[in-house]
Amino acid sequence: MIRQWSNCTTKEIAAIDKERSLVIVPIGATEQHGAHLPVGTDSIILGSLLGELEQRVTFPSHEVLLTPLIPVGKSNEHLDFPGTLTFSTTTMYNMVDDLCGSIRAHGFGKVLLMNSHGGNTDLLNVLSRDLRIKHDMEVYVFDWWFTSFWSDILAKVQQSGEYGVFHACELETSLMLVFRPDLVDMAKAADEFPSPQLTDNRHVSIKGPIVPGWKTQDVSKHGVIGAPTLASAAKGREFIDYAVVKLHEMITEVIGTNYKASLSDEA
């Protein structure tokens, strides 16, 4: 079963078998996405995909709870562009820490932090280890920007180059054309790519191995990194169908993983 934490009563949450449950904490952002997409794009996409997941899949032997989505993240790299809202590193850290502490206080021992904004990634990876130690719980981080999550479907449908899918791009715009087409203005979509100084070096580039500390204005004049002009609703539907299947597979694997117990069981 998969359902929203907010829709449960206190007695229903108390009655859940905590040994056969997973709590997913969705973490988005509110930040500029160029002239053609709304500032809530990251949160809209994440919330909508989880809605699709809730409708289409099930986990027969486990309870999967979705906490309220956190709609603001660490987005200070976008603050030069109007509309961006951000928490500081410290505030974001403490907020997720407090939330997971509350979840643990009710007996849940496994949490998946599901992130849709690249600016949150490094913080959540560091935080996950601290949460494991502080709250004695299993903490998993899923980030679809700096992992291979979209790779298989992008290999089939992506028309843009290496930096064509990054921010307010072919991928995000396609998803928004399905989830909230009323908020997309394709007449204002414009492709934009980082300077070769940050993409074509042998060692120093946005993707490393030596990564500069950058803000969005260092790599984009108008807030876009990628090729939104190549987006389409047809691609968006393919991305959604792919994501639902992939997320179901991944969450099932998280449910079946119990790394806290692994060494003691071997002993």
Rank of each mutant, 00 (worst) to 15 (best):
K134I: 12
I45E: 11
D136H: 11
E138R: 13
A168D: 06
V39K: 09
C169Q: 03
G28P: 13
S148C: 05
S88W: 05
G28H: 14
N115W: 01
N94T: 06
D152N: 12
G73H: 03
Q158N: 09
Y93N: 09
T121P: 06
T86D: 07
L53F: 14
D143Y: 02
D97S: 14
L79H: 02
L123G: 10
R56S: 09
F81I: 07
P71I: 08
N115E: 01
Q158W: 06
S102Y: 12
V39W: 09
S102E: 11
Y140H: 12
S88T: 10
L66P: 15
G101R: 13
P82N: 11
G28A: 13
W150R: 09
N120F: 04
R56W: 02
T91Q: 07
V141H: 01
C169L: 03
G34P: 07
R129M: 13
F142R: 07
V96G: 05
L127R: 14
L69I: 15
A105P: 01
L112S: 00
Y163H: 10
K74P: 01
G83V: 03
M95D: 04
E170C: 07
W144Y: 15
S160E: 05
L112G: 00
F149N: 01
H106M: 02
G118L: 04
F149R: 01
P68V: 13
T90C: 02
V141K: 05
M95R: 06
H167P: 10
T58S: 02
L66N: 12
T58M: 00
G47L: 05
Q158K: 15
V111W: 11
L50C: 12
G119N: 04
V126F: 00
